[in-house]
Design a protein around this nucleic acid. Structure first.
Lengths: 487, 487
DNA sequence: GGGTATTTGTCCGTATGTATG
DNA sequence: TCATACATACGGACAAATACC
């Protein structure tokens, strides 16, 4: 692998990548005016590419004035006017500011409503929407899905007896989940420990109304997902915010609280994105052991990891049966499918069986069957692979584009996994101002204020950018607009 | 015969077989990271297939991250992440047995657990099952339903924008419900007063956590549906049982209680089946007016009425906005579809909008669209008529057969509507003995004990017979067996 | 160093069999 | 029976990358 190849788009033609590399070297001053480039033959040999490829790149640079060629001597870097790049940037900056005055009212309304996280009710559609929680519907294998659904309905018509109906969910699907969790997340569990439900909120409601009744104090990451917090609060739980450090939830704080339940996102904290390292994991399990508490692990994001090894679930370390694991199909398939699941330790199920059975299954049966078929046929695994490669590209491109456009002005937080990242902007603007400015340039980014129980003091404002639903080919444009908005 | 063809299923498409072959080669390490694959043309020539077939296979591998492509150079094997799908569930199969030899115990437990209503987990299937809550699947227009589902998925794929997602449910479906409620139930409401949810329990949970928070005392019919009562109780509501007379809930009792909420089934009380006459209806509305209380009207059964005029919903009389109406598709279509809805008065929605929005919609979107299509095409109305005549026949036959077989020994309660009736047996046997005797003759009938908060004193035992799912031509046989069991 | 032929990925339209209504 | 839609399979054409002389 060549040096100039590393960070670039793999799908560009060779000669263009080489061209881009050399151009950047020149623009960044690593190659100075008058420097001699390696000969075409040399370059070709070094990087094991054809001479013609090198030459095409050189010729393009020649045309654009980056190089000059001296006959029978070599290619040399041209003397550039010093402020050339700057001018290019500044002209663009001014051009597009005239767009503001339309949408202000709307957004003020929205702010009031924004007790809750991103609302999809927005009336006017921004040009670029970094929404979180939607998926890339183009990547979804609708064809296979349709055929699975068809097959499932047919199955229910002909073979689906009345009697197999199960409040925990269809056995076939629970078997598939158990198998997947073992293979991909390092969790060993039995199908009868799995409960299926239509969304994490709904499953948490069931938990609150069963095991949660005698555990009314919950420790939750601060900041953390508001829609989760509301569920607990609306059940009369006292939610104790536990702050974060770089390793995730501060278990020391948890220890000092009188919480009997803890809600954590160890694989990829929401929204900050840190991964809980092994020591901290041991520590929180130790907390559960000492206090008899239960841990709720929300693995909402697990399919998306881009660097390093996949992080096994916390649940994989659980030997005491103190962890309830929650997974979802919303991020991988379609959020509108409404299928989630949780793994509840045997003993907990046994002790609360009666309580769990009070609640009817909420996921349509044929849908469960359809998903089980989908998984059985390998479409699930296939889709994971597909989404991972697809999303990885977006992820890389987004980070690169952000750095190109805003460079030193921003810091990117939580960028190894998942479908979102945080951007901290080094500015005196408030978060709201940033969001408004972005919107004025047609870019919608999101606040994380509703994820906090207390407003932030100090430090620079932070915005959330979800890129799961953003088309690959619009990311650069979107970041360009963002650059103009904030630059 | 190609190599990659040997062991594979012959029925798979060519490109998928090639895809699977190459994938296995990579997973087994025969093709290593960085290896170059034969060019599309080479591969095509070698196996005598079209280039595009090869290309399709390569593209799929590309999407899923097994390969990377270098423009005009070739396809290469990607560096795989170490242990994502390595663990093929070999060990897992064995683990499953470690599970206690529980199956049998379970059922003994179950009898005790029957704090909850009929559980569909029963292992041995009785010859005749008067189960309640299932529908006649033979009557369901699967053909039309499949096509609606197909169309809905296709719609979501092509036109289903991200932005119309609505926590209350899809507008199209809410419009259809509003229209139906007006035509069939005498209810005038706006689509934006309707909230869709996956079952009455789930909708009640949302209610409990929103408007129910400051109304913690609920009056409920005694006896009444246990699964409803649990929801309220598990939310910390105090459930005050209000006894019945022949006109339904005794509103006088409700007046004397300090309830701020009342749960009623005025069209067809569950399980006793009486209809609340107009005077009583006025009375309960008056109660709401005086106390500022809210009424929850559960119209679970409304489509099935066999004698006299259809009874309009209580909600139709509501001028104060004090009634929340609940309807469901479980009884008419399939219970496993999990679609219900409620009509919440404008003012209540307004006052609690923020709270309602905390909860994501739980019914899959495509399913909502499918049902909306189903209704739009007139299939819903058609199906209602079909089911009504069909069920009416069953209903008449059942009553006649019961009287033939058991005549004076029994009294039939609540037999003008619905999908179930109660049979009171003039005997010294206990309810449990009756159920056991019936079961010994292959007939399963159900207890209503769990619907009471206090056990019955006095009077003869009562059993519940649901006939919605019982085939017409088996009713007489079933009653014959019941006659032998109890006669 | 230059020119040409070949290989390569990619995009296009088209024909066939099948399932559905 | 006919019409439609769809997945599958095929070959032509093009431009980029490479190989060869």
């Amino acid at each position: 692998m060549a040096i100039w190849d590393q960070e670039d788009h793999k799908d560009l033609p060779l000669y263009q990548r080489l061209y881009g590399y050399i151009r950047r070297e020149i623009e960044q001053g690593k190659l100075k005016a008058g420097d001699k480039l390696p000969s075409v033959r040399q370059m070709a040999k070094e990087y094991e590419i054809s001479r013609n490829t090198v030459e095409t790149a050189y010729l393009q640079l020649l045309e654009e004035g980056y190089l000059i060629s001296k006959q029978k001597s070599g290619y040399y870097v041209e003397h550039l006017q010093p402020d050339w790049f700057e001018r290019k940037g500044s002209e663009r900056g001014k051009a597009e500011q005239s767009e503001e005055p339309q949408e202000k009212q709307q957004d003020k309304q929205q702010d009031k409503q924004q007790a809750c996280s991103p609302d999809k009710q927005g009336i006017e559609r921004p040009t670029y929407d970094f929404i979180y929680g939607e998926t890339d519907r183009d990547a979804f294998p609708y064809q296979e899905w349709r055929s699975c659904v068809q097959e499932a309905i047919r199955w229910e018509e002909t073979e689906g007896g009345t009697y197999d109906n199960n409040v925990f969910g269809e056995l076939e699907l629970r078997e598939q989940f158990a198998d997947y969790l073992y293979r991909a997340r390092g969790i060993t569990c039995q199908p009868d420990e799995i409960i299926i439900g239509s969304g994490t909120q709904q499953l948490l409601m069931v938990l609150c109304q069963t095991i949660g009744k005698d555990k009314p104090v919950l420790g939750m990451e601060e900041p953390g997902y508001d829609r989760i917090r509301y569920v607990f609060q609306n059940h009369g739980c006292q939610v104790v915010p536990i702050t974060l450090d770089t390793e995730g939830m501060r278990v020391n704080e948890l220890m000092k609280s009188n919480a009997q339940l803890a809600y954590v996102t160890p694989s990829h904290q929401y929204p900050y994105g840190m991964v809980m390292p092994i020591q901290r994991r041991m520590q929180i399990i130790e907390w559960a052991k000492q206090t008899g508490g239960m841990i709720i692990e929300d693995d909402y994001d697990s399919e998306y990891r881009y660097v390093g090894k996949p992080i096994p679930a916390l649940k994989g370390l659980d030997e005491e049966g103190a962890i309830i694991y929650m997974g979802t199909c919303s991020k991988l398939l379609l959020p509108s499918l409404r299928i989630s699941y949780m793994v509840v330790p045997h003993q907990v199920i046994r002790e609360n069986k009666q309580a769990f059975r009070q609640y009817l299954q909420t996921v349509p049966r044929f849908l469960q069957i359809a998903l089980a078929l989908f998984m059985k046929k390998g479409e699930w695994d296939r889709h994971i692979r597909r989404m991972r490669t697809r999303t990885k590209k977006k992820h890389q491109l987004l980070i690169q584009a952000l750095q190109n456009e805003l460079g030193e002005k921003i810091e990117i937080i939580g960028s190894e996994a998942g479908l979102h990242l945080l951007v901290q902007v080094k500015t005196k603007d408030t978060e709201n101002e940033l969001i408004q400015k972005a919107l004025a340039h047609g870019v919608k980014v999101y606040s994380i204020q509703s994820y906090r129980t207390k407003p932030t003091e100090s430090s620079y404002p932070v915005c959330l950018l979800g890129f799961g639903a953003m088309p690959l080919d619009r990311i650069e444009e979107a970041c360009g607009a963002l650059g103009r908005a904030w630059g």
